[in-house]
Design a protein around this nucleic acid. Structure first.
Length: 630
RNA sequence: GCCGACAUAGCUCAGCGGUAGAGCAGCUGUUUCGUAAACAGCAGGUCCUCGGUUCAAAUCCGAGUGUCGGCUCCA
């Protein structure tokens, strides 16, 4: 499968490509706008640029505070980002949370002083001299790059602009709000390392992140989302719900506990069921393979850094980081006819990728994981139909979790390999497949991999965070040519098949991490590791409770009995904390009538409750689980 | 990998140079209970690892390991 399935998604912080720096015309407009009543009014205009202008302005105010508290600080850059802003500083010492508090205090003083933002345009050389005079070497570098760029374009050095407020002046393109008093409620969030220009070879700066909003309500909402995300953190819920754990003997790899493993299996088996309907064939290929395989596939040059390698008897072996090359060995194990295609090989292979230690994070960035991977070999005339079918599989599978997939389509990059005519045809057929399936997609020109156009699938979770899930790649050359795949057509001539790489969940580990956060651990019945807890009220009800559990288990349901001598209230509390979908209370009345009283997870106090017979319960739960819906 | 922070009981955390603490969970006993915590007792620790400073280190310093926040946003 593709290289990028396991990559960390930009959780909650989608890249804001043009954050904070709108076109020059806008900045003048905002700056020269007459006095406005309030920030609310400013933002009521609805232009996102204005919120960004305020965020960027707050970054300036923060820079003022940092320069004041830490003289000699060199400034990096300070743009607006998705939910706020940051500024990179080269400060003499490491900043602490206490420093953030002190910086905030200074910032509030500056806001209270209501300094106007003043835009000043100066000739390039004057500006450069000013910046250099202040010892702002990073800014000098930025200016020199600007000049070089202008020169390359055949232009002279551009005029440059400064924005000043109070004692502070910064090289800046703008725009800004009219004055510091226009800055809304803000909060500094964290300090983190960041390289100058994102380059590990350049100096490490300290980045302070902050957030600022038009009004208190919006700030509170943001902080609530943030707190809620923390509460839902799968690393925390994984421990609370006893799903998995991590141990330092295997960084970046989960230890799956019984309940987590059940969830894992349910996801796999669901996909197996879907695949069976679509005539996939499941295969399994070795985890331990010689480096020679990667030399042939081309990964040796591009991917070696990310592979676990070791020597044995003078050979270099690797733990496979992807399944695709080995899949071709099964394809080539005999001569293939056009009648054999499409050939769909599914593989739940365990993969290892040597991710940098600092990037590991829970289940979303791991070194060891399983993909619900498949490699599909098709004739050129089968391509469109197959893509359409794959799009349908994606929609079906995401529907099981109540998720709506969004699609993007990335086309041929400049550095692509392979026959341009093949590319053109594959791209056209993919777009036709989208159209035929009535699926809209975002086109990403030239963003495909070097060997394949690709479809990426995204979802938005319950907190509105975007996650990139899986990809479908239409491989015209990598597997077919490097591994010399062929089939005989009707005339007996050897023809190259097209290979499709696809994974629907992507990494199952990562998918589970996202599901945990999306559902806040309260899984739909069909994947809940424990679907119901039977709660006997007193000791004498334990035996009938076990009987009820047996009845439900015989219908394939996952049921536990809480036979502890806790009071019923406590048993309910524990089941709630474990987010078990149903609690079945059994006391004298129920035992007498062979019934149980149903309490649903999360039910309000005093909600009306149903008492049902054991068979009725079994029927209802079995039907709900089989429906496989969120 | 790099920058910074953190690492104390199964979990969440307090203690920050002078005998290791709490709540929850666990164990034992009592309680047999009607929709989100019954009561009592007991047990539980190489204070991440290694080294250093000190009369004395969980506490200060250094190295290692792991975890967390970041490392794309171009004035």
């Amino acid at each position: 499968m593709a290289d990028n399935v396991n990559e960390a998604a930009p959780a909650g912080a989608p890249p804001a490509a043009d954050a904070g720096h709108a076109a020059g015309a806008v900045d003048v407009e905002i700056l020269e706008a007459p006095e406005r009543g309030s920030v609310d009014e400013l933002l009521d205009a609805g232009a996102h640029d204005e919120l960004d202008a305020m965020r960027h302005s707050t970054a300036h105010v923060m820079a003022e505070a940092v320069l004041d508290l830490f003289p000699g600080t060199k400034l990096g850059i300070g743009p607006a980002v998705a939910d706020g802003f940051y500024y990179d500083f080269d400060v003499p010492r490491a900043l602490t949370p206490d420093d953030l508090a002190a910086i905030e205090v200074r910032m509030r003083e500056s806001v209270a002083a209501n300094h106007p933002f003043i835009r000043r345009e100066v000739p390039f050389d004057d500006g450069r001299a000013a910046v250099e005079g202040r010892g702002q070497t990073y800014k000098v570098e930025i200016l020199d790059d600007l000049a070089a760029k202008a020169k390359a374009a055949g232009e002279g050095s551009p005029a440059i602009t400064f924005y000043e407020h109070g004692p502070f002046s910064d090289l800046c393109r703008g725009p800004h709000v009219a004055s510091t008093g226009k800055i809304g409620p803000f909060k500094l969030l964290s300090v983190a390392g960041a390289y100058w220009r994102g380059d590990a070879k350049r100096p490490a700066l300290q980045r302070i992140y902050g957030t600022v909003w038009a009004d208190q309500e919006a700030l509170d909402a943001f902080l609530w989302r943030r707190a809620e995300a923390k509460k839902r953190d799968h690393r925390r819920l994984g421990v609370q719900l006893d799903l998995f754990s991590f141990h330092d003997v295997s960084p970046g790899a989960a230890f799956w506990h019984p309940k987590g493993q059940k969830l894992y299996r349910l996801l796999e088996d669901s996909m197996r069921e879907l695949q069976a309907r679509r005539d996939y064939l499941e295969v399994s290929t070795p985890m331990l393979v010689s480096e020679r395989l990667w030399q042939q596939s081309g990964h040796w040059d591009l991917y070696r850094e990310n592979m676990f390698l070791f020597e044995s008897e003078n050979q270099t072996f690797s733990l496979k980081p992807m399944n695709c090359p080995e899949s071709t060995f099964i394809y080539r194990s005999r001569k293939r006819s056009y009648r054999d295609l499409p050939l769909r090989y599914a593989e739940y292979g365990r993969l290892h990728r040597n991710e940098l230690s600092g990037t590991l994070s829970g289940l979303t960035r791991v070194r060891q994981f399983v993909q619900d991977d498949a490699h599909i070999y098709v004739r050129p005339d089968q391509l469109m139909e197959e893509i359409q079918a794959l799009l349908g599989e994606v929609r079906e599978a995401y529907g099981w979790f109540g998720l709506t997939p969004r699609f993007s389509f990335a086309t041929k990059p400049d550095k692509a390999i392979g026959d341009p005519a093949l590319w053109e045809r594959a791209e056209r057929l993919t777009m036709e497949a989208f159209a035929a399936s009535d699926i809209s997609y975002e086109l990403k020109p030239k963003d495909g991999t070097f060997y394949a156009p690709k479809i990426d699938i995204y979802i938005d979770d319950a907190l509105g965070r975007e996650w990139q899930m899986a990809t479908i790649q239409i491989d015209l050359t990598m597997l077919p040519e490097r591994f010399d795949l062929k089939y005989d057509d009707e005339t007996g001539a050897a023809v190259r098949p097209i290979a499709l790489h696809r994974a629907i969940y992507g990494s199952i580990e990562r998918f589970i991490g996202i599901l945990v956060e999306h559902f806040a651990g309260a899984f739909p019945l069909w994947i809940a590791p424990v679907q119901a807890v039977v709660i006997p009220i007193a000791d004498r009800h334990v035996e009938p409770a076990e009987e009820l559990a047996s009845v439900l288990r015989s219908r394939g349901l996952r049921v536990e009995v809480d036979a502890s001598d806790n009071r019923m209230q406590n048993k309910i509390r524990l089941a709630q904390e474990q987010k078990v979908p149903y609690m079945l209370v059994l006391g004298d009345r129920e035992v007498e009538a062979k019934t149980a009283t149903v309490r649903r997870r999360g039910e309000e106090k005093g909600a009306a409750q149903e008492t049902l017979t054991w068979d009725a319960l079994a029927d209802r739960f079995a039907a709900e689980a089989a429906a496989r819906g969120a």
